[in-house]
């Protein structure tokens, strides 16, 4: 097995109905079916989830850390993009 490493998979678990799938970690598995099985054994031992997604890590397109400036810095001086200028009526409750 040392010469033929299994591909890496990213695992996403939906904790409860109504919540989004959340990234919980990664693992190795030879194929999609085993990735789900491994995810069940590695990440849901304490009944954490209602749904599992497995995505090959190689299929994830990621931004490059060196693009951090152009991607994120322009938002820095634009406080008006944050919805903090509205008075929320009490009856709305937690948003």
């Amino acid at each position: 097995m040392s010469s033929k490493e299994w591909p890496l998979w990213e695992i996403f678990i939906r904790g409860q109905h109504g919540l989004n799938h959340r990234h919980v970690g990664s693992l190795h598995a030879p194929d999609a079916e085993m990735a789900i099985r491994h995810a069940r054994d590695v990440y849901t031992r304490r009944k954490e989830g209602v749904s599992i997604w497995a995505v090959r890590s190689a299929d994830i397109v990621a931004s490059s850390p060196s693009d951090k400036g152009p991607l994120f810095d322009p938002a820095e001086s634009k406080v008006y993009r944050h919805p903090t200028f509205f008075d929320i009526p009490d009856e709305v409750g937690h948003m």
Partner: peptide
């Protein structure tokens, strides 16, 4: 276990 994932599955 031969790999981490199988080790955990067996322990489970």
């Amino acid at each position: 276990g031969p790999v981490l994932e199988e080790d955990i599955a067996l322990a489970n």
